[in-house]
Design a protein around this nucleic acid. Structure first.
Lengths: 192, 192
DNA sequence: ATGACCATGTAATCCGTTACATGATTCG
DNA sequence: CGAATCATGTAACGGATTACATGGTCAT
């Protein structure tokens, strides 16, 4: 039930479902995502549970919006979740499973292509994260220059950058190993 | 629908649902997992679709087992999935979301404790992966010494090791930054 | 007026976890 | 004989995605 708590967390400022969706797409993309069709019913449920309160407000641009605010109970529930320690959810990387089975194709160029395409996709995502990181350039020098909120955001962004960078390095390592393996195979064939 | 393909991939040798569950727990733990209650119905469905074929066989130890084999169609479907290129599923890291919201607690020691506990859990998992890596010690020298299957398995294991290592380094970086921020905050308070 | 974007929702379906239910075999 | 392990499933629930449905406002 993490989405409940993530919405509670994002609602440090009053926001509509639509706003929250945009926040998901802007920031936490490297660690969470949600669709509007999941957000709206969840907000509704949280309001029924008394963790949120909503009011309809006119919009500056567009139709009327339902704006949600966290209640005192909502904040308490968020803090309870945070104090319970890190939630280690299950990881799922379909592309690693694919790599594990690529031997079935008996074609090392397919594995090579696969890793090169993966590297490209990861690099693309890394660029996106690094554009965000540039805004915090000062933080690398003096972490005390940031507000509490910015500081925590920055740490999360660093997680994205270090973890995608490591994955790209892994791609490079794989590509090198695949090439090395090929060369040695060819050599030992010639030796015969 | 990745589980379908992962089961097809794991079934390079005939196996029962119970066998496959043990394989999940032994190997792919760092990139996939599944429960028996999900595996059994999925195998059933794949058989109905003609991608698998099963037969009941006596067990060496215990009651009779239903052993599944991949059909030609099953292998073709697996290869189709592999050739389609890397599947970039959505990532979900609840603990990063937690970190993003920890500022609400207004207590830097809570953030510090959180990161230290996270580091501990990740280290534990890294040890598990490294025990697996030791079996492939030779591969680091000569990748051509491994069979195709072992080579691909090894690359997947390396993904786990590099990616968890990077995450641990990130924890250390965070811990350092939190401490540095504290010191600077205290200093500027004294300066007043 | 029409297309882009703002805004909110429901329905169908699928994926995944937890709990429940059953029973065979083996080892101490 | 009792506990551990082998072995196969079903049921209930919850989480997440895709598709569908509706309509307002604004700029061109």
């Amino acid at each position: 039930m993490s989405l409940d708590h993530i919405l509670l967390g994002l609602l440090r400022e009053p926001a509509s479902g639509y706003d929250l969706k945009r926040e998901f797409d802007a920031g936490p993309r490297h660690f969470w995502s949600a669709e509007l069709s999941q957000i709206y019913p969840t907000l509704n449920r949280l309001e029924k549970k008394g963790l949120l309160r909503s009011s309809v407000e006119p919009s500056a641009q567009g139709p009327r919006r339902r704006v949600y605010r966290r209640t005192k109970t909502g904040l308490q529930e968020l803090l309870r979740w945070l104090r319970a320690g890190p939630v280690m959810g299950t990881q799922r990387f379909a592309y690693v499973a694919q790599l594990a089975f690529l031997h079935e194709a008996h074609d090392s160029s397919l594995t090579l292509d696969f890793m090169q395409q993966l590297r490209k996709e990861l690099s693309h995502f890394l660029s996106f994260l690094q554009r965000g990181e540039d805004l915090y350039a000062a933080a690398a020098q003096d972490p005390a220059a940031l507000s509490d909120i910015e500081f925590h955001d920055y740490l999360c962004l660093r997680m994205g950058v270090t973890s995608i960078s490591a994955r790209i390095a892994w791609c490079d390592e794989c590509i090198e190993r695949i090439r090395g393996r090929r060369r040695r195979r060819k050599r030992s064939e010639v030796a015969k």
